[in-house]
Simulated assay, not measured.
Amino acid sequence: MPYFPFFIDISGRRCLIAGGGRIALHKINKLLPFSPEMHVVSPEICDDIAGIPGLCLQQREFRQSDLDGAFFVIAATDRQEVNADISRLCRERGILCNAVDSPADCSFFFPALAQRGDITAGVSTSGKSPLIAAQLRRQIEGLLTPQLAEICDILGELRQEIRGKFPLEKQRAQAMTAALEYCLQREKVPEYTELLEFINGLELKV
C-alpha cells in the first residue's frame, strides 16, 4: 500500500533518535535543514554526531520515558529487537516512528529528498526500493535549478498582490500561470517590480 506524502512543519518539534552511529547520523543530517528539536540517546555516540551543534545528547540506553513529548521517533540502534520494541511503544502512544531497515515497524518513511531553496520534493517507494527512490531523486535534482528557486520566492511574494487584484479563483490561477511563464521565458529572474507591472497589465477572462 502506498504511503501518503504529508509535508509538515517540524521546526521546533521534539524528535527522539535512538542510536548514535552511522545510520543515526544519516537521519540527523537529513533533518537538520528542517530544524526539529533533536534528542539523541545511545550508549555510544559517534564523534560526527557529537560535533553537531544544537543536539541534546544522552549517552545511555533507551528508556521508555525518552518518548515523553516526542512528536516523532527514529529507532536507529544496531539491535533490531530494540528498534522493534521502540516501534511498538510508539504505536501504543500514538507517536510516529521510523525503524531503520524494518518497513513493518515504520509508521512513516524517510523520502529521497531533492531540495533547492523552499522547493522540496520527496520520493517514496513505501520502503520497497530505496534505489528507485534515489534514482528519481537525482532526476528531480536536475530540474531544481537556482533560477527556479528564485522564481518560487518571487511568486510567493506576488500571491498577495494577485489575491487583491483578481477576485475570482480562476483569474488568480490564470495570473499565477502567466507570471510563471513570464519568468521562465527570461534568462534572468525578473525583479519584483517588473513582474508586478506585468501582472497589472493582464486582462483575464472571467
Score class of each variant (00 low, 15 high):
108 F>A: 00
23 I>F: 04
75 A>E: 02
141 E>H: 13
43 P>Y: 00
39 H>D: 02
116 R>N: 08
43 P>C: 06
194 E>D: 08
200 N>T: 08
73 V>A: 14
178 A>E: 12
79 R>V: 10
5 P>S: 05
180 L>E: 12
74 I>V: 15
139 Q>R: 14
127 G>P: 01
202 L>G: 07
64 Q>H: 07
200 N>P: 00
59 Q>Y: 04
119 I>D: 14
94 G>C: 10
143 L>G: 00
64 Q>V: 12
161 E>L: 00
89 L>R: 13
21 G>M: 02
177 T>A: 15
45 I>K: 01
14 R>T: 13
89 L>V: 05
15 C>L: 13
204 L>W: 12
86 I>K: 09
24 A>P: 11
15 C>R: 07
171 Q>H: 10
175 A>V: 11
149 A>K: 14
100 V>E: 02
203 E>T: 10
161 E>Y: 00
102 S>I: 13
5 P>C: 03
105 D>C: 08
205 K>R: 10
83 N>S: 14
164 G>L: 00
148 L>K: 10
188 K>W: 03
194 E>M: 05
177 T>I: 01
17 I>A: 04
185 Q>K: 05
155 L>F: 02
110 F>I: 05
83 N>W: 06
182 Y>E: 09
193 T>N: 10
16 L>G: 11
201 G>C: 08
79 R>N: 03
122 G>T: 02
19 G>F: 06
145 T>P: 09
155 L>E: 01
54 G>C: 03
148 L>N: 03
151 I>E: 13
158 L>Q: 05
112 A>H: 06
131 L>R: 02
151 I>D: 03
180 L>H: 12
136 L>V: 15
191 E>S: 07
199 I>P: 05
94 G>R: 05
15 C>A: 10
85 D>L: 14
161 E>D: 15
62 F>I: 15
127 G>S: 09
